[in-house]
Computed example of a mutant assay.
Amino acid sequence: MFVPSDLDVLVPTRDRSGALAVTLSGLAAQTASGFRVVVSDQSRTAVSGDGLVAAAARILEHRGCPVTLIHHVPPRGMAEQRAFLLRHAERRLVLYLDDDVWLEPEAIEVLLAAISRLRCGFVGFGLHGLSYRDDVRPQELTPYEEWTDGVRPERVRRGTAAWRRHTLHNASNLLHLDERTSPATHGGGAKPPWRPYKVAWIGGCVIYDRPRLVECGGFDFWTHVPPHHAGEDVVAQLRVMERYGGAGLLPSRAYHLELPTTVADRRAECYDYVIDAS
């Protein structure tokens, strides 16, 4: 059974000190403590000088969660940013958490329990976009399928039925999925703390078995993609999923702050340079 001391939380950030402070505050309020936090900061002005970020870091350390803030410049793309964080990881598990995600207090506890039981390459929470909570999209929920007999490796590629699962994480679809599929909703007794389901990929909050992520290449492909790119997490997850499997968890305990993306130029998809080229 994995415990918080097995976990490094890796947070990439750039020019979003206010959002980062919210994200770190969510980590500081976790029921679990003892995990380590590493922030790779590519901001023009180092976030370590921001009062709210510094306060959140102090609270984390007071609660037994060491924090390392690294000003890592110049920016060379998100894949390089994530590869840099992975090189600074020391523990068996790594949780990549974007700098605009707030976690419910039990989130890390649930992630640790799930990856301990499932023993796959990664598990994660898709993100709630609560501004869409009244926007119900039944057609986007149809690819949903739970893992009922353990998580198995899968090969997921564009154009396949499995690829269409990416719609599950649009808008507030996960809220509506949980309402529709919860055993308690359908008279199935008490609601379980989490249920694994099949994914195409997960953005924003993913915990990996670090040796398996490294074995599958991690994010070292950053040298083979243009500096301005998108979809680096998709490539890493497809590779890990093909060898070790991966799963999303319902209900999600992660919330998107819904700020404008810092990756504005998305014309170069890592999939095209790495998966299609392999």
Rank of each mutant, 00 (worst) to 15 (best):
P4L: 08
D6Y: 10
D8E: 05
V9I: 13
V9S: 10
L10P: 12
L10R: 05
P12N: 08
T13I: 14
T13L: 11
T13Q: 07
D15S: 15
R16G: 06
R16A: 15
R16S: 06
A21W: 03
V22T: 12
G26P: 04
L27V: 13
G34M: 01
F35Q: 09
V38A: 11
S40C: 11
R44T: 13
R44H: 08
T45M: 09
T45R: 10
V47E: 04
V47W: 08
S48H: 09
G49W: 09
D50V: 10
D50W: 03
L52Q: 13
V53S: 06
A55V: 00
A57L: 01
R63Y: 05
C65S: 15
P66K: 13
H71I: 10
V73G: 10
P74S: 02
P75L: 04
A79C: 07
Q81G: 14
R82Q: 03
L85P: 14
L85T: 11
L86A: 14
A89C: 03
R91T: 04
L95I: 11
V101N: 06
V101L: 00
L103Y: 06
L103C: 11
E106H: 09
E106W: 07
A107Y: 00
A113D: 11
A114G: 02
I115L: 11
I115T: 02
R117A: 15
L118C: 11
C120S: 05
C120N: 08
G121T: 09
G124Y: 11
G126S: 15
G129N: 13
L130S: 11
S131A: 15
R133Y: 08
D135K: 06
R137D: 13
Q139A: 03
E140G: 00
P143F: 01
E145Y: 01
T148K: 14
V151A: 00
E154W: 02
R155H: 02
A161L: 00
A161H: 09
A162M: 11
R164S: 13
R164Y: 10
T167K: 04
L168I: 12
N170S: 03
A171P: 01
L175M: 10
L175D: 13
E179D: 13
R180P: 09
R180H: 12
S182W: 10
P183A: 05
P183H: 04
T185V: 07
G187N: 07
A190I: 09
P192Y: 01
P193Y: 00
W201G: 01
I202A: 01
I202F: 08
I207F: 00
V214A: 12
V214K: 05
E215G: 14
G218C: 07
W222Q: 03
T223V: 09
V225E: 12
P226Q: 04
A230D: 07
V235F: 04
V235P: 06
V235A: 04
V240R: 04
M241R: 15
R243Y: 01
Y244H: 15
G245K: 12
G246D: 06
A247S: 12
A247R: 14
H256W: 11
L257H: 12
L259R: 13
P260R: 03
T262N: 08
A264S: 14
A264L: 08
R266M: 00
R267A: 15
R267L: 03
R267N: 07
E269S: 10
C270P: 10
D272H: 13
Y273V: 06
D276R: 14
A277D: 12
S278C: 05
